[in-house]
Simulated scan of single mutants.
Amino acid sequence: MASMESPCVRICVMDPVSGLCRGCARTLDEIVAWGTMTPDRRRTIMRELDQRMARVAAVETSQ
C-alpha cells in the first residue's frame, strides 16, 4: 500500500485566531478528514498551504 502524502510536521498547535494548525496550516476539520479525503482534495489543500502560512505569519508579525 502506498503511503499517503501529508503536510504534517508534528507541530500540532491550533491558532485560535486563524483556526489553522501552526505546523501545517490545515483546519481541524481538514486534519480529521485527511485520511478519508480523495487524493484530488488533498492535493488542492496542499497547494493552498503556503499561502495560508504566509497569511498567518503576516498577522502574527503585525501584532
Rank of each mutant, 00 (worst) to 15 (best):
I31Y: 02
R41D: 15
V56A: 13
I31G: 01
R43F: 03
T27Y: 03
T27S: 14
T27M: 03
R52N: 10
E5F: 10
A58N: 10
V9F: 02
E60C: 03
C8N: 03
P7F: 08
R42H: 10
V59S: 08
D50V: 01
A57G: 11
V17A: 14
Q63M: 04
V17S: 13
V56S: 04
R52V: 02
T61P: 00
D29K: 12
Q63P: 00
R42Y: 11
D15P: 05
E5L: 13
E60R: 15
M53L: 14
Q51I: 01
T44V: 07
R52D: 05
T38A: 09
R52P: 06
L49E: 06
R52L: 01
V32W: 05
S3F: 07
R47T: 15
D29T: 00
T61K: 12
I45T: 09
E48K: 06
M4D: 05
R26M: 04
M53S: 15
V59P: 01
S3N: 09
G19E: 05
R22P: 01
Q51M: 10
T44S: 13
D50H: 08
L49F: 04
G23M: 04
A57K: 14
V59A: 13
A58G: 10
C8G: 06
G35F: 02
T27C: 05
R22M: 14
M37V: 02
R41G: 07
R10A: 13
E60L: 12
A2V: 04
I45F: 03
M53H: 11
R52W: 03
L28R: 10
M53C: 12
V32L: 14
D29C: 00
M14N: 12
L20Y: 15
R22G: 15
R10H: 08
Q63T: 10
G35H: 04
A2D: 07
V9W: 02
R22F: 02
T36H: 06
T27F: 01
L49D: 07
C21M: 04
T44H: 13
P7M: 04
R47L: 14
V17P: 00
S18P: 01
M53T: 12
P39H: 04
C21R: 00
Q51T: 12
L28M: 09
R55M: 13
